[in-house]
Design a protein around this nucleic acid. Structure first.
Length: 580
RNA sequence: GCGCCCAUAGCUCAGCUGGAUAGAGCGUUGGCCUCCGGAGCCAAAGGUCACAGGUUCGAAUCCUGUUGGGCGCGCCA
C-alpha cells in the first residue's frame, strides 16, 4: 500500500516539475508514515514540509498543489492537509479489507519476501566455550541470534547460522585437567583440586564416563601427579598441572580425556539449544582452522599486506594503522597463534565461502574486540562494513532481590536448562526477545517463575488458541461457516474490525523494519498489539452467532488473524498452539 | 585516565531512523453479557523523556557538555 501511495505522489511531483513549481533536480522520495491517530487518516507524509523551503512556498500552499496534481485513485477515499503542512491519506474501505483475502491466500508466506537478490548472510551467535553448560546469559544471545536469522530469511536473505566452537586453546587444557583430576578422585587418589579449575558438577559426570569406559588406565599415583606442583601463583600451578597431565598421559590418552570432555559438553550445548528451538546449519571447529593450516595462511596473507612486524620475539599485527588503540599479537613468543589469529582465519574463511555480510552476535563485554577484527578485515583488503557486530548486553540475574554473580569456573550460575524447565522454552524466548538487545536487562528469576502464567507470550498464544477454538466450536455445533474465500468482506465495518484489519496490514512493514534494525523485539511488540486487538474484538462481538454473511466475513477476518499470529510467533521461534 | 553502551510512569520496557495530544505490561483503584475458552475485556490514576545548551517549521529521537550506572582496555578466550 505504501508503495502504491508513493508512486501516486511521485506522479504528482512529476506534474509539478513540469509546471515549474519544483526544480527538476529535486528528486526527493516521498516517505509515508503510519499515523498515530485516527483523525489523521491512515498514512501521512511530510513531503510538503521538507520541500517548502527549497521552492519558496508556504508548506500548506505546496501541500495543496501536490494534492491537486494527484491522479485519481480508487484506493484513496480522502486526502487532507493538516497541521503545519502534513498530507493525510484516508484509505477506501474496500482496499482496506482486501488484505484479509491476501493473507489467507499467502498463508505462511504473508509478511515474507522472496526477492532480496540473493544477499548471502552468515550469522554466528552464542559460540560459548565448550567448558560448561550454557547459562541464562547465553540464552539471550541464543534467542536473539536465532530470531534474527529467521527475520532476515523472511526478508529474502539467504541466511546461514553457525556456532564457532572454541575447541582450541588453554581453556580446553583446563577442562582436560579438571576432568582428569576428578577421574583420579574416583580412582581413590587424594589429589588437590585447584580452585581455578572447573568446579561444576558436570565435570564429575564426564570423569565418571571415563572411569566407566576406561577403567583405571588413566590412573597415576597422586604423589606423582602433584609432585613439584607448588607454584605460588594459582594460574602457574594450573599450567604446571597441564604440563604434568601431558607428560604422564602422553599425547593420545591426553587427547582422549580432552575429547570426552569436549564431546560431552558440545553435545550438551547442542541438545540444550535444540530444546530452545535453536538449530544451527553448522558447528565450526576452531581447531580445524589450525590443523587445516588456515591460521598459518591467514597470518601469511596478513604479512603480505605489510602490516605485520616482530617485537619481543612475538609476531604483531599493526591494527593501530586502522584505528585500533594498540597493536595486537598474532603469534606468541612460544610460537603458538593467539585466539585473535584463529578468529581472523575464521572470518577470512567465511568471506571466502562467499558470504556478503558477516553478522556476529557478541556479548557486550567483547565490544573492545571489534576494532581489531575490523582492522584485520581491512588489512586483508575487505570492506570492514561487511562485518556487522551486534552486541547483546548482559542479563544481570537477580534472585530474591539479590544480584547473582556468575562464572563458569566457579560453577555458580543458573543454566539455560534450568530456566527452560522452570518457565518453558516459549516463555523464556519471548521474555528474552522482548527487550532490544543493546538494552541492559534485569532478569529476575523469581519474577520470571512466578509470572510464568502472566508472561506476555501466553497472551499472544491464547489469542491464537482462542481463534482455533472458535473454528472447533463451529465444527462441533455443526454451524455452517460458509465459503471463507468468497466472504463479503465489505460487511466488516465495526471499529474493532477496522482496527484488527489495519494491524494485520502493518505486518509486512513490521517484519521489514525489524530485520532492517536487527530488532526482533519489534515483532514481539507487534504480536502483543495484534493479540490485544483480537481479544478486544472477541469481547465486543460474537462471531458464530452472527447472521450467515456477516459470520462468514468475521471468520475470514479471524482466520487471517490466526495466520499472522502464527507467522509472527514463528519469526521469534515461539510455538503457536491450537489449544492451551 | 581512554573507549563503547545505557538513562522515558512506582517497577520492567516500547517509541516505526526528526513529526501532530510520548505508549504498553506489571502493580494500584473501579467496572464486564446465563452467549464462540475469564490465561480475556473496559475505565481511572500515574511523566520536567537524567540535567544544561545547540541544530530547525518541529527533538524522547541528531550534535556538544555535565551527572549517574554498566562494560572493556592481556603474548586469556
Amino acid at each position: 500500500m505504501k508503495q502504491q501511495l508513493q508512486s501516486l505522489f511521485a506522479a504528482s511531483l512529476d506534474q509539478l516539475r513540469r509546471d515549474g513549481v519544483l526544480a527538476p533536480e529535486q528528486l526527493l522520495e516521498v516517505r509515508f508514515d503510519r499515523t498515530r491517530q485516527k483523525q489523521h487518516g491512515d498514512f501521512a507524509t511530510n513531503i510538503a514540509l521538507s520541500l517548502a523551503k527549497a521552492c519558496g512556498r508556504a508548506p500548506r500552499e505546496l501541500a495543496q498543489l501536490i494534492v491537486d496534481a494527484l491522479p485519481a485513485a480508487p484506493e484513496i477515499a480522502k486526502v487532507e492537509i493538516a497541521g503545519p503542512g502534513f498530507i493525510n491519506v484516508f484509505l477506501a474501505a474496500d482496499s482496506r479489507v482486501h488484505v484479509i483475502a491476501a493473507i489467507r491466500d499467502a498463508g505462511a508466506g504473508y509478511g515474507r519476501r522472496t526477492a532480496a537478490a540473493g544477499s548471502r548472510v552468515i550469522i554466528e551467535f552464542v559460540s560459548a566455550n565448550p567448558t560448561g553448560p550454557l547459562h541464562v546469559g547465553h540464552g539471550r544471545g541464543a534467542a536473539y541470534g536465532d530470531s534474527l536469522a529467521r527475520l532476515l530469511a523472511a526478508t529474502g536473505c539467504d541466511v546461514s547460522t553457525e556456532y564457532y566452537v572454541n575447541d582450541a586453546g588453554r581453556q580446553m587444557d583446563i577442562l582436560a585437567v579438571s576432568v582428569w583430576l576428578r577421574y583420579l578422585e574416583l580412582c581413590g587418589e587424594q589429589v588437590v583440586f585447584p580452585d581455578n579449575a572447573y568446579q561444576g558438577d558436570y565435570i564429575f559426570d564426564i570423569a565418571a564416563t571415563i572411569h566407566r569406559e576406561g577403567g583405571e588406565s588413566y590412573r597415576h599415583p597422586a604423589e606423582t601427579v602433584m609432585d613439584g606442583i607448588d607454584a605460588e601463583d594459582l594460574e602457574s600451578r594450573l599450567d604446571a598441572l597441564i604440563q604434568r597431565a601431558h607428560k604422564l598421559l602422553g599425547p593420545q590418552r591426553y587427547q582422549y580425556v580432552l575429547g570426552v570432555g569436549l564431546d560431552a559438553l558440545t553435545a550438551d550445548i547442542r541438545g540444550d539449544l535444540e530444546q530452545f528451538n535453536v538449530a544451527y546449519d553448522r558447528w565450526f571447529s576452531e581447531r580445524s582452522l589450525v590443523t587445516d593450516h588456515h591460521v598459518d595462511a591467514a597470518i601469511q596473507r596478513l604479512a603480505k599486506s605489510g602490516h605485520v612486524f616482530e617485537r619481543d620475539g612475538a609476531l604483531w599485527f599493526r591494527s593501530t594503522a586502522f584505528g585500533d588503540e594498540k597493536d595486537r599479537v598474532v603469534v606468541r613468543e612460544n610460537g603458538a597463534p593467539t585466539y585473535f589469529a584463529s578468529d581472523i582465519a575464521y572470518h577470512l574463511n567465511k568471506l571466502e565461502r562467499g558470504y556478503d555480510r558477516l553478522i556476529d552476535v557478541w556479548g557486550a563485554d567483547h565490544h573492545g574486540y571489534m576494532p581489531r577484527m575490523k582492522a584485520a578485515l581491512q588489512a586483508l583488503g575487505y570492506e570492514p562494513d561487511r562485518l556487522v557486530v551486534l552486541l547483546v548486553q548482559f542479563a544481570a540475574l537477580y534472585r530474591g532481590g539479590q544480584k547473582v554473580s556468575m562464572s563458569t569456573r566457579s560453577g555458580e550460575f543458573v543454566t539455560l536448562r534450568e530456566l527452560r524447565h522452570e518457565v518453558g522454552a516459549d516463555a523464556a524466548r519471548f521474555f528474552y526477545v522482548q527487550r532490544k538487545s543493546e538494552q541492559h536487562m534485569d532478569f529476575d528469576l523469581d519474577l520470571a517463575k512466578s509470572q510464568s502464567n502472566e508472561n506476555p507470550v501466553y497472551y499472544v498464544q491464547y489469542a491464537h488458541a482462542r481463534i482455533c477454538s472458535v473454528f472447533r466450536q463451529a465444527a462441533e455445533k455443526d454451524i455452517d461457516t460458509g465459503d471463507l474465500d468468497n466472504a463479503d468482506l465489505s460487511l466488516l465495518g465495526e471499529s474493532h474490525e477496522v482496527e484488527v484489519v489495519d494491524t494485520l496490514s502493518r505486518f509486512p512493514e513490521v517484519v521489514h523494519n525489524a530485520a532492517a534494525n536487527y530488532g526482533p523485539h519489534q515483532v514481539a511488540y507487534y504480536l502483543r498489539n495484534l493479540a490485544n486487538n483480537f481479544h478486544t474484538y472477541y469481547n465486543a462481538h460474537n462471531f458464530l452467532g452472527a447472521p450467515p454473511d456477516l459470520r462468514c466475513a468475521r471468520l475470514a477476518l479471524i482466520d487471517a488473524t490466526r495466520q499472522v499470529l502464527a507467522n509472527g510467533l514463528d519469526l521469534i521461534g515461539v510455538g503457536a498452539p491450537e489449544q492451551m
